[in-house]
Design a protein around this nucleic acid. Structure first.
Lengths: 344, 344
DNA sequence: CTCTCCTGCTAAAACCATTTAGCAATTGCC
DNA sequence: GGCAATTGCTAAATGGTTTTAGCAGGAGAG
């Protein structure tokens, strides 16, 4: 059991200098006029005593805590959440920062609590992460530190990190077309007509836009569009099953991996072989996608890069207001690589 | 843009009292002799100014920060990790604490960094969480605050939270036996002889012990024990497929849900129907388990309760040193409910 | 020789809340 | 009335760091 924490005064005393000198030297001030000898003595003393600055005292004085807050609606729902957190954590660690994680469940009262708890602790910045991108997000408190919106946007806080859903949407269609599945494509998860008045998230809207644009650019139309609100395996299964009773698609564009999972189940039941009878492309790169047989080719949500980007944007004054990150294509076996080369 | 943060002195001034009085009243000291009138005035002033105490100043003075650190080897691997975090977060929030999350990758250097970063910030307690329970965990730094081991144990820190794997193991076997699948059971994921000298984690060892004990208690033996080190769907698939070329089990006890997933794939390929031809029971209650058709009956790892328990143990001086939490049985369709009643 | 500037360093204030010690006025007791 | 105890409150110290203002001594300019 150690006696007490060693303080800057201890270091200064051991070095035979003032705390002022010790502080300046240890914080590495550039313009100091202290001698090389003084530097050496202070560093030696600090090392030999195992000095670590008291963060509370420093925060009190400087109003900086080398801490950022990651406030999100949900933490545990999908693997997406932990990917964002992991990326953010890694970037924070590299910048010698530390991260407070807070969950609000999307409830306004908890959001306020969370922001205040963070502000009380002198955090240097706030990341608002939206896991279920549907929710809109407005904690109405005066905030005078940098804010980054992660996987969402806000009128109040312009800096945001989003996946490039538009390009992702185009890529998905391109993949299918180039693999020779231009005809009889089914879109699983959304029907433009049925959902006309409804609002999905910004992100998802852009995904649709990309899909539509690439379809029309290639002169293609969907054989069917199957709508459902929650993109869970159950729905993918049911929709695909009823579809198969009437028609037989050559390809399916699934709006997420869980829907695709359901489609796999229905296709297998009907004795159809992937990718020979039906090719599939999907979105997210969920854990699932690698578990399926054959593996699911999917347009990945770049979780970790997004988390990382959010922290970097928070800590460096961002020149640009919004960042969109590319959604990489993860090639697996649910679609043939197209004729002229090109796995990845 | 607000002018400056409002401080305790502002509140005191507005109430026409000293900061001492304001402090005592706002922190709710029990033995104070201040008048009811003073209480009212201070509370009114604090409310009208929107006073929030500066956590850094308070931490500096009291050495308490209402912050705990959650240090884990991995954050993003499985849903297990986020379950633990989510539970811990919820309990912390209820206790008006806030949680620092740190990831070490199991690397000693990063572990030390993490502990020091936490200690520097005057955290009130440390949770060491082991996601990949295999790793043993020894950050060798003087720590004078409470420590709880989560999903792991340590010689230095006796307080721990673990799932009751032994009982879970027994339950799994009991389920199978009571569903009338006493014969031709295959154990998927472990072979006692092959792995004799090898060390899995404590948790897993206890799971095995529970399984063995319940088997012998019922006079049963496994038809086969299939060993593999990484419990991923691939291996479950391969092992089951080669097994099926020679023998046909009536039931499979899978050591986690991902292995079970692989088994599902191989069984489907062989045209076997679950649960009629083969019944399955597994462990973890991964996201997957609910996606499968039929749903996978599994002995759940109580993620959230564990995270919650860790925080509670950390904040209340624990009478007992180790806590084990029951692993609930999640009934789904991969095994028939046994004859005399009893779903749930 | 005086005045200014630089060098190398330090004293003390500031950050904001908590807490100890104690003051002045009133009440209680005999 | 005199003494002690109680009531209701405050001054000042404390925690550890950063930062502003400035001191003492020497060097260089004129």
């Amino acid at each position: 059991m150690q006696k007490k924490r060693v303080t800057l005064a201890d270091v200064a005393r051991m070095a035979g200098l003032s705390t002022t000198a010790a502080s300046m030297i240890l914080t590495g001030r550039p313009d100091t006029r202290l001698s090389a000898d003084a530097h050496a003595k202070v560093h030696a003393a600090a090392a030999s005593l195992g000095y670590r600055p008291n963060a509370a005292a420093r925060a009190l004085r400087t109003d900086k805590s080398r801490t950022i807050a990651f406030i999100s609606d949900y933490v545990a729902t999908t693997r997406f959440a932990s990917g964002l957190i992991r990326g953010a954590l890694a970037a924070a660690e590299e910048a010698k920062h530390v991260m407070l994680v807070l969950e609000t469940g999307g409830e306004p009262a908890r959001e306020i609590e969370a922001v205040e708890a963070a502000l009380d602790r002198q955090v240097d910045g706030l990341i608002f992460a939206a896991m279920r991108a549907r929710e809109v997000f407005v904690p109405d408190i005066a905030i005078s530190i940098p804010v980054v919106m992660l996987n969402g946007t806000s009128g109040r806080f312009p800096v945001s990190v989003l996946p490039d859903e538009y390009q992702g949407g185009r890529d998905a269609v391109r993949l299918l077309a180039e693999a020779g599945n231009a005809a009889d494509i089914v879109l699983l998860g959304h029907n433009a007509e049925e959902e006309a008045g409804l609002f999905r998230s910004e992100s998802i809207s852009r995904r649709f836009a990309g899909i539509r644009d690439e379809m029309t650019a290639r002169g293609l139309t969907f054989m069917a569009e199957l709508s459902c609100w929650n993109w869970e395996p159950d729905h993918g299964y049911e929709l695909t099953r009823t579809l198969l009773q009437q028609r037989r698609p050559r390809a399916m564009l699934c709006l997420n991996d869980r829907l695709a999972f359901g489609a796999y189940q229905a296709l297998a039941e009907a004795g159809l072989v992937i990718p020979d009878d039906v090719a599939l492309v999907s979105f997210d790169n969920d854990e699932l996608a690698s578990y399926l047989r054959p593996g699911l080719t999917t347009i990945a949500l770049p979780h970790e890069q997004m988390g990382r980007a959010a922290v970097e944007l928070l800590l460096d004054p961002p020149a640009t207001t919004g960042t969109t990150l590319p959604m990489p294509t993860i090639w697996r076996g649910s679609i043939r690589a197209h004729t002229d080369g090109g796995a990845s």
